[in-house]
């Protein structure tokens, strides 16, 4: 039996509470992170991602505490990301019980930090999160959207507020070279829309690198997971569709198993 494809619920945490944004704005509260983590573990989640969306330094201390409580509660792995600003931040989260840390803005602003974190804690604990948005107006078009229009995927940082001019596919390759052990690829265009993952983007990145890729942004139906896995993703993340109980993880897994994808029972 080969390695199973992973289903990963994502918890956006603001000052210790789970919230979920729509296109990175308009947050709505949905619950306690520890309670939700236990709920998803029991439902068959393969892993969890906790994203700290708190802006303040105070809030980050809260996240270390959340990580510790989640680690004590569940027996599956989890990644913590959002606001990781230094090797020391990464250390505190890992020591609190996170299995991996993900870096996003820090990785772009200071690429050497990827190497530093990877050297210190191992590439297996180093996730680089990439937020990408389709750019139709400038740069070298390289991908085609669903209507056949050409675009290139541009990396955004600071929670989608600042564009970087970096091509997400090239940045993926660079992140791998620097020591990333996994990529968490979020489509800003699709996030919160329920229209499905950005398949051309995932396909291009999965072909460009030889580390695992987690698809993120846009899932609302079991078919979307199948599309992501067919495009080469190793894991797929979703938030709203699970938080609002449109589908359970088990329903998604049953669907995938019938479609011939290996998933953990």
């Amino acid at each position: 039996m080969p390695l199973a494809k992973r289903i990963i619920p994502c918890l956006d945490v603001d000052r210790g509470r789970v919230v979920k944004g729509v296109k990175f704005t308009g947050l709505r509260g949905v619950g306690d992170p520890v309670e939700l983590a236990a709920y998803y573990t029991a439902q068959g989640a393969d892993e969890l991602v906790l994203l700290d969306v708190t802006a303040s330094v105070e809030g980050r201390k809260t996240m270390v505490e959340v990580a510790r409580r989640v680690a004590e509660e569940i027996s599956i792995p989890f990644t913590v990301g959002g606001g990781v600003g230094s090797v020391e931040d990464a250390r505190r989260l890992l020591e609190s019980g996170a299995d991996k840390v993900s870096v996003n803005t820090l990785a772009v602003v200071k690429p050497a930090s990827i190497a530093a974190i990877s050297r210190e804690f191992g590439s297996q604990s180093t996730v680089v999160a990439i937020d990408a948005k389709r750019n139709y107006t400038r740069g070298n078009p390289m991908l085609q959207d669903e209507q056949g229009r050409e675009f290139w995927p541009e990396v955004y940082i600071y929670s989608g507020r600042k564009q970087t001019g970096l091509n997400a596919v090239e940045w993926s390759r660079r992140a791998e070279e620097l020591g990333a052990g996994e990529l968490l690829v979020t489509s800003i265009d699709r996030d919160g829309t329920g229209l499905g993952y950005d398949i051309p983007l995932l396909k291009a990145i999965a072909e460009a690198v030889s580390i695992p890729v987690i698809a993120s942004g846009g899932a609302s139906r079991p078919e979307h997971f199948l599309e992501a896995f067919k495009a080469g993703a190793d894991a797929a993340l979703a938030a709203s569709m699970f938080h609002y109980r449109r589908y359970t993880i088990r329903e998604v897994k049953d669907y995938l198993r019938r479609a011939g994808i290996v998933v953990r029972a």
């Binding site: 390695l3 199973a4 992973r6 393969d46 580390i211 695992p212 190793d234």
Partner: peptide, 10 residues
Amino acid sequence: VKAPHIGWNT
């Protein structure tokens, strides 16, 4: 194969 080997295997 992709390395690291990350995830659930038998």
